[in-house]
């Protein structure tokens, strides 16, 4: 049962990622990227990380993708305006991406990654565990990321401000 769900999710995410890269109109690629993010959230649920799935949907599909959609509409990119890129660059991209992909796949197939069969974490206090660990062991990165957000906000405002 879970295997079929996994295969459906995996094929959906790969197909939607391909549509993101290959569709010529930017707004279609934004919409396909939202589909891809939902399937990735499904992968998180399958991997027993429900909290990550929720955070992923809220942050990516809710915030970042809305930002992308607004930008695409604001810049009026709703048309097919992209001329062809030079063919040697396309060839180089296919070659490098494909060869690296095949190499990594061969490596995964030949290594024998046997997972430990440890007992599952107690599911009930999962979010509680995340919160406790976030505010004790990971307190410094947490605070630093708040400073990062502040600087990103100021930087975005300064960069997008109209020059006089």
């Amino acid at each position: 049962m879970s295997q079929t769900i996994f295969y459906i999710l995996a094929s959906l995410s790969i197909i939607s990622a391909l549509f993101v890269v290959f569709s010529k109109i930017p707004i279609y690629s934004v919409l396909w990227l939202i589909v891809c993010f939902f399937t990735i959230a499904g992968h998180y649920v399958m991997l027993n990380a429900q909290f990550m799935a929720i955070v992923h949907i809220i942050v990516y599909a809710g915030a970042i993708m809305v930002l992308f959609l607004f930008t695409v509409m604001l810049l009026n990119l709703n048309k097919e305006s992209e001329p062809h890129k030079r063919t040697y660059l396309k060839f180089a991209a296919i070659l490098s991406a494909g060869v690296l992909f095949l190499t990594l796949l061969a490596a995964f197939k030949s290594t024998n990654l046997t997972p430990y069969q440890l007992p599952e974490v107690n599911e009930v206090g999962y979010i509680q565990n995340v919160g406790i660990k976030l505010f004790t062991d990971y307190l410094l990165p947490f605070e630093i990321s708040s400073i990062l957000f502040l600087s990103a906000m100021i930087g975005a405002v300064v960069l997008a401000k109209k020059e006089k």
């Binding site: 990622a17 890269v21 890129k85 660059l89 396309k90 991209a93 490098s96 991406a97 494909g98 690296l100």
Partner: peptide, 10 residues
């Protein structure tokens, strides 16, 4: 690698 291909070609 799909993302890498997109980064190169678009």
């Amino acid at each position: 690698f799909i993302g890498m291909y997109g980064l190169f070609t678009r």
